[in-house]
Design a protein around this nucleic acid. Sequence first.
RNA 1: GCCAGCGUAGCUCAGUCGGCAGAGCGGCAGUUUUGUAAACUGCGGGUCGGGGGUUCGAUUCCCUCCGCUGGCUCCA
Length: 603
Amino acid sequence: MPSNAGQTEEAQQLYKIRHSSAHVMAQAVLEIFPDAKLAIGPPIQDGFYYDFDLPRPLTPEDLEEIETRARNILRGDHHFECREISADEARSLFANQPYKLELIEGILASGTDEYGQPLETTEAPKLTTFRQDAFEDLCRGPHVHSTREINPEAFKILHTAGAYWRGDEHRPMLQRIYGTAWKTPEELQAYLHRLEEAKRRDHRRLGKRLDLFSASEAVGPGLTLWHPKGAMVRYLAERFSLEAHILNGYQLVYTPHIGRSGLWKTSGHLDFYKDSMFSPIESEGEEYYLKPMNCPFHIEIYKSNQRSYRDLPLRLAEFGTVYRYERSGVLQGLTRVRGFTQDDAHTFCRPDQIGAEILLALRFSLYVLRSFGLTDFTAYISTRPEAKAIGSVEDWDKAVETLRGALEAVNVPYEYDIGGGAFYGPKIDVKLRDSLGREWQLSTVQLDFNLPERFSMEFTGSDGKPQRPMMVHRALFGSAERFFAMLIEHYAGAFPMWIAPVQATIIPISDKQNEYAAQVAARLDMEKVRTSTDTRDERMQAKIRDFELEKAPYALVVGKREAAEGTISVRSRDKGDLKSMTVDAFLELTRAERETGKPVKLD
RNA sequence: GCCAGCGUAGCUCAGUCGGCAGAGCGGCAGUUUUGUAAACUGCGGGUCGGGGGUUCGAUUCCCUCCGCUGGCUCCA
């Protein structure tokens, strides 16, 4: 979202550079396509874009020409001149620009800015334009004083994309051109380098190269095949998490993948979520749906017995695989798929327990995530949506306050996402900033005012009267698939030892040491160290190179000397050659690394 | 779903302005018995994403479907 509220002067200047760059790019586009219809062109994180309605699709050659022309414009000393214009003048100035006309009417009528965002002030709307060289655009600013403030060598056109006018899929599809601009060429290079690095770490690329997972056209889009190495990482992560759950007051359950249509009718999914569900399966005149969520099943487990206030809280956990119909164009690697496994849990509790339960969910979540070496979290509290919401404003306010209190207690920085809650209740989302500074949505803790009602859930209170339990949904990894994608990219495929599929590659220098290598492997096997022995007829150098590319934490080289001395030559992925030592010394050296994923009970 | 681009060997990618389909790596076989990031030689390997059309002839041109990529919308 456009925001010129950059706190620092530095951020302000960058904002202006990008905003002005968008104008210059638009000027260049108009030079090539005089009939182009302009939409909007805001600065964004790391750059800017501008949306156009053009007579034909842009080609890569077009982009080169636009970039050349834009740089030429930047080289001139063109001043950005602001002027306020009357409604009539605006209408005539932009008579051939239907999108601008729509923006103008929007500004005049409802007090929105040129991006359709509500204006902060209650003043009478003003129409302003900014002009540089031969290009004048409806714009609130601010801009740089002159194009001289933008270094042409720190400016680059990136790529095109389709974008709906005003983000509305029922309105025209425009061509968006993305660009980026920085203060110095060095900063531009650093940014481009960051993009390269992200590409290098891309989980789809590493997933293939490290043989972790795949998708098959024959199986279907958005459906993941976990290969042995990927499955090992997942198994270790899940085993740790499950054991930690059990140690910390959760009870494990398993539930089916499909359920009768009546269940989804009761839950409300067929009313509110049907667009995201796969078509029903018909059998014996009965309709079944693949589950898009686990909650109704856990509720049915709750309801399978009478519950007393003494039984609560009841915390049911399941790594449940859910299926959601996603439009084909939105699928992406492991981060957006059609079948995924949630590390789901539902807590059913008394109203007086809700604060403690939220806190437990948060503390537990942070404990589990930190065990994976993840540290940089930000939480987002989503509040009552404007449109439709169940429950009174007072209930929501109280609940939001409970969430806030829990976040204060765990000392995680948080922000509010006003109106971002689901219709059934407020939530906390925990996002992680990874080693490249990118945000990943992981944990979510959600209150539910809706389902206990819909399923008529009850417990018997201390007064013997039926009462309604409160319900909390939460997931820590979010989805096993997305979490795995994040781990791959965060660690660039070099997993911490405790979840590395292969912890040590044993490298015999010649086949004369194969037998000794087998002895070393057997010894490590007893200690539950996951090894793989490279007995190929290759030189040691080749085996070391492949070991580095495979990113196992350790290589154990065994040659004539080691076989004679009963040692191994240890090479660390991170620290290089550690010289020879005994297997026992190696086990001692790596003990902490190997035992990171030992579940503990929180106090 | 929409816009744009892409789909050639297991992988990374050349190539064909319509005329017998290529490289490197990997694989296999042999030689080599190796000391911390790629030994040498040889050999296999392809409905050029699927289907249809135009053409004497299509991997190449056209249509259509599938999938992927970047976005938009939507989301764990």
